[in-house]
Simulated scan of single mutants.
Amino acid sequence: MCLGIPMRIIECAGWSAQCEGRGVRRQVNLALVDEQPVGTWVLVVQSMAREVLSADEADKIQRALDGVEAALSGERDLSAYFDDLIASPPRRRVVRSG
């Protein structure tokens, strides 16, 4: 399984950008999202920017990743990491057959 990591573009040259996120710097291919200005948040999977993110979207993903790390460290109360889901839980979709 691959996780998308929010990264901020710190240098850009065409479809290649130097990005930084979660304490890591990486050269990222921007071919799927086109050239982006410095400061833009992108969702990076295997050194490829898959999606342009708003700062709010990047923050929500960062908190969720922090929550995963906390869970792996044995933390039991994870509500602070997923307050957006707690405030508005996903709806169940009822599928009727026949």
Rank of each mutant, 00 (worst) to 15 (best):
G4F: 04
A87Q: 14
Q36H: 01
W41V: 01
C2T: 13
Q46V: 02
E75R: 11
R76Y: 14
G39A: 05
A87T: 13
R92D: 10
S73R: 13
T40A: 08
D59Y: 11
P89F: 08
E51N: 06
A64Q: 13
C19V: 06
A64L: 15
M1F: 07
Q46Y: 06
P89K: 06
Q46R: 05
D77F: 11
L32H: 13
E69A: 14
R25N: 05
W15N: 15
G23R: 00
V24E: 11
G39R: 01
Q62S: 10
K60L: 15
L53W: 02
V28F: 02
R76E: 15
A49Q: 00
A55M: 06
P37Y: 02
E57L: 07
V95K: 12
E20I: 05
D59V: 09
P6L: 00
D59C: 11
L32S: 11
A31D: 12
A70T: 06
S16R: 07
A31S: 14
F82Y: 15
S88I: 08
E51K: 12
L72V: 14
R25M: 05
R26T: 10
G98D: 11
D77C: 09
R26F: 09
D34L: 10
E57S: 03
Q36K: 04
V44F: 04
D56V: 04
D84A: 12
E69Y: 14
L72N: 14
G21R: 00
L53N: 04
R76A: 15
G74S: 08
S73L: 10
C19H: 03
P6R: 00
G21V: 02
P6V: 02
L53T: 03
I9H: 01
W41S: 00
M7T: 00
G67D: 05
A55L: 08
S16I: 10
V95L: 15
R26N: 08
R93W: 14
L53V: 05
R22V: 12
S16K: 07
L32V: 08
L30P: 00
S54F: 11
S73H: 09
C2S: 12
V42W: 01
Y81C: 10
I5D: 03
E57M: 10
I10M: 02
G14L: 07
L65S: 05
M48R: 05
G21K: 02
R92W: 09
